[in-house]
Design a protein around this nucleic acid. Structure first.
Lengths: 221, 221
DNA sequence: TAGATTGTTAATCGATTAACAATC
DNA sequence: TAGATTGTTAATCGATTAACAATC
């Protein structure tokens, strides 16, 4: 078949999609790789190469048709049908996610929340039913291809994921600060704020060190 | 001076640090690159190369001393002094972040929240004072090297960041779903859940397509 | 000494991007 | 036609990792 889309490209498609939607909202019909690159904060050659993996949807000398590119990018990302989401963990984070309005907008539907607390099981949170861990397998069968969002404490994240994987889960968004072990073929994305802060701390420290070395003063007020 | 630490390495140091802390908590004194790699979900050669940027802190035939490596990694990441954090935006997300217990643990101190709402300005949220945008410059002067966490609506994120950068900010953690334009020398990390979900949607779709192509059935129950 | 493990080299791999022919 | 812009090639760059000498 066609060349597989590289990982780095897949990670950028949602950024292009966001830029394209902004353009569409502004009534813009056509966009060049240069403009799209500028809006998305990347190199223009990279945009063209990334888009070429989807097919030849541009017109030389003209650019890309915004609406059509939105359609093709969405299709490539599997955002056309409605995509189910199951939230594991109905604590603060889980509830915040259940209330997040961004999901429905993007064609995502939260099917269920899973929690171990008997006080929560059987109830609803943000309009989403809360079920016990014994019903994971049932939830995953009813919502094939659902993405599992892990919002449990770090200590139990791995066993929760094991259960979901056994129930057929193939896509996991992990908010717990642990490295998850999953079998081949299961995709995991990690969101870890503490980790991002530590990376920034490194560069902040670097900045201070080099500022010190160069005798740079702080910006005058 | 010494070779600059590659970006990819910087991004992994916090993961090693987490693994090392777990080991320390378990009373483990010494660890090999192999074991640390396993715990951190990376290749052992990569661990050794990454750690070699910090210096020669291992002992051939023995491994790395856990406590000492924690110290050196923390130092490299600038986690020794207390690092200030300023949260821009006192909405749901901002408040959730202010209440997040993980900050204080990691030697981070939330200095202030900045919001435009007169009802919030002058008050406190989660023990953190809320100030108006007119005091950004003052807050940044009092907390040099502070990391700015952007938790504002996407529409105003860029102008908020511009103001902080003018006030001397060099490190930004952005939760708003926009590409930020910042001058050279300012580090930005992006956390975007909707984006991560779309990436996973791609792989979920892929899985379904190939499963379909290969005639694979779902896992028997 | 024998076994283990680091630190580093060098080969490999994948991603980035300048450049330009193709073509609207 | 002249100008603009894509799609793709090929050079470049940086990151990964197998392999192994150094050495505890």
């Amino acid at each position: 078949m066609s060349t597989p889309v590289p990982e780095a490209t897949v990670a950028r498609l949602p950024i292009y999609l966001r830029s394209l939607r902004e353009l569409a909202e502004m009534g813009v019909k056509t966009v060049s790789s240069n403009r799209l690159a500028e809006l998305s904060g990347v190199n223009a050659a990279k945009v063209r190469k990334d888009l070429s993996y989807l097919g030849s949807y541009g017109v030389r000398g003209v650019g890309y048709e915004v609406g059509y590119l939105i359609f093709q990018t969405s299709r490539e990302l599997g955002l056309t049908g409605d995509r189910g989401i199951v939230i594991a963990g109905a604590g603060h984070l889980g509830q915040a996610l259940a209330n997040y309005p961004g999901f429905a907008q993007k064609g995502c539907r939260i099917c269920a929340m899973v929690d171990i607390d008997p006080q929560k099981v059987g109830g609803e949170l943000g309009g989403v039913p809360v079920v016990g861990p014994d019903r994971v397998s049932e939830v995953m069968s009813r919502n094939p291809g659902a993405i599992v969002v892990v919002a449990t404490p770090a200590t139990v994240a791995q066993e929760v994921v094991d259960r979901f994987v056994r129930a057929g889960a193939h896509s996991i968004l992990n908010f717990a600060p642990v490295v998850l072990n999953v079998p081949e073929g299961v995709a995991v994305r990690q969101v870890d704020m503490a980790l991002e802060l530590q990376v920034l701390s490194f560069y902040a420290e670097q900045g201070e060190r080099s500022a010190l070395a160069k005798g740079v003063e702080s910006v005058p007020s």
